[in-house]
Design a binder for these strands. Sequence first.
DNA 1: GTTGTGACGATTG
DNA 2: TCAATCGCCACAA
Length: 118
Amino acid sequence: MPTGPRQPLEPSAPSPDFRAQVLAVVARIPKGRLASYGQVAALAGFPQRPRQVGMVLSGLTEGTKLPWHRVVNNRGYVPSRGRWWGAFEQIGRLRDEGIEVDDLGNLDLEAHRWAPRS
DNA sequence: GTTGTGACGATTG
DNA sequence: TCAATCGCCACAA
């Protein structure tokens, strides 16, 4: 087939698999726990793509059952880049799980850091 | 096909 | 400690 070299079984699988892996990782975050974007990316098998994690979560939107609100950045606060209102709702959900969150989205990441086991 | 942007992270100055 | 910059890659215009 003259369509060019394609390697479907490469370990660095691009888009669709990456997204599925990220969603799978987010789904296993226990209640009352927090994980950073980089942590989720690493557990998904792509330790160097935290930004794409955020992009995947941005595409979830309403109706998802995933605990997307348990994902915060490594600085320990809820990001608000381009969706301040969504961040506000995220803060409310975290408070509902017993996590202390400031109105600005500041929280104690290390105190609630999700400890994944192999 | 090129450019710009984005729910980040790590490094450098 | 803070600010600026780079890296990485997918997606929209």
